[in-house]
């Protein structure tokens, strides 16, 4: 069966939202597709994934894949790709996808298109488009191998929604580890905890820069509450310890594209902009009228943030 194999990303026995962007890609390129759920709770996750129109859903659960270790995951994925005769493998370009996909590509002798934001078919040839040069160029590429591995940018492939129907669920076998797996011991994973929406999925993101200092939370949280927003930060704010490291938005942090992005006291360095310029509406609050962030903002407010933000919270309540 030619077609696309979508690799689901599981967490706590459920699909992470990233999975639905990879499914959206598979639906967009057309043809038949299957979904592979690998990891603890795969059987359960597979049931939820059966409503997306896949030809089948394959569930692989085994004590060996209890924790994500690429040297244990990749051989099984590779075997399923080969046995199933898939010509495309799609995963979302999260940390999971970016870690796994290139290793899988090398294993399969396949070309890899990383972090794509569009795909077109031109005379039977598939072309992928991806942001490069910190988002300042869009590069088109073509894969020359029979199998194509793709990771898709979550913000550019809106999550597919369940379309009903029930794909058959199969149990797949664990294919054994890479020899290198004996050199890897998974110790633990610490998950940053937050009651707020996840940065990658939030409809509104409020981000703060280093100028917020120790008042980062005190100033930004009321605004985030008023807007139902996730909180983000510049690298400078994270580095200084004013904001938690997992809040970093930008080239080295998260890529976000919410309906509304509010940049508070952020200068607009190109590495920051690379992670948020896909936002639909951008608001910047900065006391420097020449701050580069204003060049990409739809609405700019030149004011001291310590005055503007509390006022904004009040005004949002007043006008609601």
């Amino acid at each position: 069966m030619a077609g696309t194999l979508v690799i689901a990303e599981l967490e706590g026995g459920k699909s992470r939202s990233t999975t639905f962007s990879a499914i959206a890609f598979a639906k967009q390129v057309g043809g038949s597709f299957a979904i592979l759920a690998i990891g603890p709770g795969a059987a359960n996750a597979a049931k939820d994934l059966a409503g997306f129109g896949a030809a089948k859903v394959i569930a692989v659960d085994d004590p060996a894949v209890k924790d994500y270790v690429v040297e244990r995951f990749a051989p099984t994925v590779a075997k399923i790709v080969k046995d199933g005769g898939f010509d495309t493998v799609a995963v979302t370009a999260s940390s999971f996808g970016k870690d796994l996909a290139p290793r899988l590509a090398a294993k399969l002798g396949a070309g890899y298109a990383p972090d794509i934001n569009a795909v077109t078919v031109d005379g039977g040839k598939r072309l992928y488009r991806r942001p490069t040069y910190a988002g300042n160029a869009l590069s088109w590429l073509e894969i020359a191998t029979p199998i194509q591995i793709v990771s898709v940018r979550q913000t550019e492939f809106p999550a597919a929604t369940a379309s009903g129907g029930a794909s058959p669920v199969e149990t797949g076998a664990y294919a054994g580890p890479d020899a290198a797996a004996s050199q890897v011991e998974f110790v633990k994973v610490e998950v940053g905890k937050s009651e707020r929406p996840d940065l990658g999925e939030a409809r509104v993101v409020v981000s703060g820069g280093r100028s917020l200092k120790e008042q980062f939370k005190q100033v930004l949280e009321p605004l985030a509450d008023a807007l139902g927003a996730a909180v983000g930060a510049s690298r400078a704010a994270c580095d200084a310890g004013y904001a938690a490291p997992e809040l970093q938005v930008g080239q080295t942090g998260r890529t976000v594209a919410p309906q509304l992005y509010v940049a508070v006291g952020i200068s607009g360095a190109i590495q920051h902009i690379a992670g948020m310029k896909g936002s639909k509406v951008i608001v910047a609050i900065n006391k420097d009228p020449d701050a580069p962030i204003f060049q990409i903002s739809d609405y700019g407010l030149v004011q001291d943030l310590f005055v503007a933000v509390p006022e904004l919270v009040k005004e949002l309540k007043a006008q609601s």
């Binding site: 073509e142 204003f294 739809d298 609405y299 700019g300 904004l312």
Partner: peptide
Amino acid sequence: TLKVRYANAELPPKRAAGVKVKDVKELV
């Protein structure tokens, strides 16, 4: 032998700088 071939690139649409608002009220 290369497995991927880069064709042309394009520049992303420039985000036009928007407007400056005079105060919080106008922003909201």
